[in-house]
Write a protein that binds this DNA or RNA. Structure first.
Lengths: 130, 130
DNA sequence: AATATACTAGTAATAGTTATCATTAAGGAG
DNA sequence: CTCCTTAATGATAACTATTACTAGTATATT
């Protein structure tokens, strides 16, 4: 993996985020620093950075993938109204059962995704008003 | 919601499945019985059936949504190699923490998605052979 | 049987992402 | 430092999954 300016700017921009931007959000922010960068480059680098464990690609509900600067294992809440994604505290660990022994199977379990969904605080408040 | 032949055939075909087909898989199966049906009709009816709670739409990792004839809450395992999705036993219940009290928030939690991912038994066996 | 309208087939449009390809630029070897 | 291999880039096309549109059809209520 070669070190390019594009890659490091993409990473820097993502790391300023406390939320979980989509590829096109990052694209428009990165373009302020690198106006000639192309969307494909953003996708390509996000893919490399996540497959090498520097960042995390989130495949939760909804139609867009999102990117998380924090590659450590943690859970998320997703708002089905505004599509925002919130981190749940990293020390929140749920004791998940060993499904292989439960089902007598020999799968290789690489990880788990736990997602809560509903209305975020803001959208919930708005719903009451309307 | 009106009762059409298309809708009931789509539901019947889905209910013969023990796995979790995609919309286009169902489309090609349904077409054997209703050769003139269109893909849009399949999507439309799957949407109605899932929003009325008869079936379940799965938005897990990967790029295609899948449909589950069983609308009861249960968890899934997803194979990242062959993209298949397996049901975990319905009596497997994990005690999930109340994230609102944990984070002092007033979100409205409508549900949770718990997904295990990795290599299914078959793909795991194949990997060892190669 | 008449009627209002939800649903359909066929098709176009959209959104998100990936592939292609000629050109550029990392970064290791000499 | 210069050369050279090749990974990465920008620009664009292609692709995949899904949704929208519309004239015509069929359901189910009156």
């Amino acid at each position: 993996m070669r070190n390019t300016e594009q890659k490091s700017v993409i990473l820097e921009v993502l790391q300023t985020h406390k939320d979980h931007p989509t590829a096109d959000q990052l694209y428009s922010e990165v373009r302020e620093r690198l106006p000639k960068i192309s969307l494909g480059t953003v996708y390509r680098n996000l893919e490399k950075l996540s497959s090498s464990g520097v960042i995390m690609k989130l495949e939760l509900g909804g139609n867009q993938k999102r990117f998380d600067p924090n590659p450590m294992d943690h859970y998320h809440f997703r708002c089905i109204t505004c599509s925002s994604i919130e981190d749940l505290p990293q020390d929140l660990k749920v004791d998940l059962p060993d499904i292989n022994s439960e089902t007598r199977s020999n799968r290789v379990i690489l990880g788990t995704t736990l997602e809560y969904y509903g209305y975020c605080e803001e959208c919930a408040a708005n719903k009451i008003l309307n």
